[in-house]
């Protein structure tokens, strides 16, 4: 260490002094590290995805306006898939993304369950896990109907 930072000093010398050369080595090393760091940080930031997705809030879902009781539709909500269906009490919406590995669930009207086609996860009408490998329920979204238009909120 002493040689690296303080120059070539004799082993028996009591207080080694930095030489001009070792000081310059140290300064060059520091500036090189700063330069490489200054180039690397923006480059790493460049690779980070710029798209942040939607900001949440109410999104109008035109496909859901004409759903009849028992029918369902898979729609895009700010880039994320949701499943909207109309039951006896009105419209309900859940994330359509299976919590297991991200496939889209389908509504099985006869069994009144959401089924995932990839690894056979089953969720009940409220999105709770019934069977299969899903670790968590399907998140529910708020639905509003205002003068014939349907709005779903993902927040």
């Amino acid at each position: 260490m002493s040689n690296r930072f303080l120059g070539n000093t004799e082993m028996n010398e009591p207080t080694p002094q930095p030489t001009r050369r070792s000081f310059l080595d140290w300064v060059i090393g520091l500036f090189s590290a700063v330069t490489v760091g200054a180039m690397t940080i923006p480059a790493l930031a460049y690779f980070w995805p710029a798209a942040k997705g939607g900001k949440g809030g109410d999104v109008e879902v035109k496909e859901a306006a004409n759903l009849k009781p028992g029918e369902s539709a898979i729609v895009q909500l700010q880039g994320k898939a949701a499943i909207v269906r109309r039951d006896a009490s009105g419209l309900v919406a859940y994330s359509a993304v299976c919590t297991h590995l991200g496939c889209l669930v389908k509504w099985d009207g006869a069994r009144k369950e959401f089924l995932c086609p990839c690894h056979a996860a089953v969720f009940d009408a409220s999105g709770r896990v019934v069977s299969g490998p899903a670790p968590a329920p399907l998140p529910a979204y708020k639905v509003k109907e205002v003068s014939g238009k349907v709005f779903v909120s993902t927040t």
Binding site: P49, G53, G79, A81
Partner: peptide, 27 residues
Amino acid sequence: TTVGTESANKIPIIGEWLRYFIRGGDV
């Protein structure tokens, strides 16, 4: 690819970050 990259999400702490980075977004 959706299923394969979703697997990355199951890694603790960095999983969600890693999936977002690999996909270039949420999906």
